[in-house]
Structure formats: structure tokens, C-alpha cells
Amino acid sequence: MRFTKDHEWVELAGDVATVGITAYAAEQLGDVVFVEVPEVGKAVKAGDAFAVVESVKAASDVYAPISGEVVAANGELADAPDTVNAQPEGAGWFAKLKITDLAQFEALMDRDAYEAFLGTL
């Protein structure tokens, strides 16, 4: 699993990257009440706002950590947004992207680096 400074995580299986927000981000947001996931088939570039996550008092854009085409989106979150709080780095995933540029993935932080980054906040 790799991480961004915007608190997204990416897990790679073959050329499909699963993306979500980190446990830290989920805790900072508080109770998640709504998630807008991207449409399947949409092409996204790294850094694009491609999803929205909302708590009662805040709405945050989620940025694509990596470029690719959306091949799956987590429709379960519409009815159970609390999954993002319960299992942010598992069942609370947002979307799966088919990627072409492995270097983008490699350039992201590993867990140790991310933990160290959190320590600076």
C-alpha cells in the first residue's frame, strides 16, 4: 500500500489500483455521512479531484493519487458511508483505477514514510 500527502492510499493488484482515504483522514473528518464516487469509465489524471467525501460540517475533495481509467466504484458507500470510518483502508475503498504508469505508483510514499509525514503535522 502506498500513500499521498493528501491522505489517499493506493493498493496495486496487477494493473488495477484500489484507492481510498487513510485512517488518519477518516478520523480527521469525523463521521462520514456521504461519499460521491466517480463514474465507471471516467479517465482521471493524478491530482484531479475525482470523488467527494462529506462529514456533517465539512466536504472534501478526494484527489486521484494516480492516473488511470475508473473500472469500478464502491457503490456500497452510498447506503453505508460509515464504512469509511469503520474500515477506511479496506471495505471503505472508493474506486479502482486501471493504470498505465507504474512509475507514478512507485513515486508515492510507503507506510513508513507516510507515518513519518503524519508525525510532522
Binding site: V56, K57, A58, A59
Partner: peptide, 12 residues
């Protein structure tokens, strides 16, 4: 559903 509104979402 206040996240639709100006005091939270501001320019969005």
C-alpha cells in the same frame, strides 16, 4: 445536508 451550502462549501 449543509455541505451543499456556502458557509461550508464556499465557492463550490
Amino acid at each position: 445536508l449543509s455541505t451543499r451550502e456556502q458557509h461550508i462549501r464556499r465557492e463550490k
